[in-house]
Amino acid sequence: MRIVKALAVALSLSFASPVLAAEAPPPPDARFGFAGLFGTFDRGALQRGFQVYKEVCSACHSMRLLSYRNLLDIGLTDEQVRAIAAEYQITDGPNEDGEMFERPGRLSDRFRRPFPNEQAARVANNGAYPVDLSVITKARAGGANYIHALLTGYVDPPAGVEVMPGMNYNAWFAGNQIAMPNVLNPGQLEFADGTEATVEQMSRDVTTFLAWAAEPEMERRRQMGVKVLIFLAILGGLVYATKRKVWADVKH
């Protein structure tokens, strides 16, 4: 039976016209500071973005590839990160008595998941599964621009469009009907640095945080890239000069 199903899938994939959800338009360029070839992550935005994730997104979305120790890279101090980790109760064990037990989180712990498994997440979210956000900007066409557009894309549906029960209208989601409700409202949280928590601000900050989470090596990568390209430019000049010299006595 499974083979028949697989065959049917492969056949329809290869040869029939795929049944596609209505495609959303490409998201506008949000001009993030980290987007350019030499861009870096703004540390303030990263810390505010983490706050948005912690206070809003993490109610439903896991980031299972991140550990609390990773937060040391966004400019938080050792004490701050330890305090953040300790806010969470992590299931550990088994202990000597064979029992699982709870303890405060440590730097080495992965971000605690809001739900123990996918089924629990679906039950709590009307059947929808809030995706893991660890690499979300790498996992969506349009990357950070798309995430920002999506978070700020909750608008009233155009006339004549009927939104299915339990769904929400979003201008940038493929098919426009998304299970996730709008979660960003002006002033819903207070940033530690006093920045005004507008929807635009919160969305930009959390998107910056998610982009960093997906590519924590990005800044180091670009720095190394500049050095490597400078090295290769000099080496290229030397090699080309050598080649000219070697070939100088030969007509070719």
Binding site: L37, R221, R222, M224, G225, V226, V228, L229, L232, A233, L235, G236, V239, Y240, T242, K243
Partner: peptide, 17 residues
């Protein structure tokens, strides 16, 4: 060698940027 350095530069640009 000239080609190799150009190739490595293209390669590096892809990897790093």
């Amino acid at each position: 060698s000239v080609g190799i350095v150009v190739y490595l530069a293209v390669f590096a640009f892809l990897i790093f940027f």
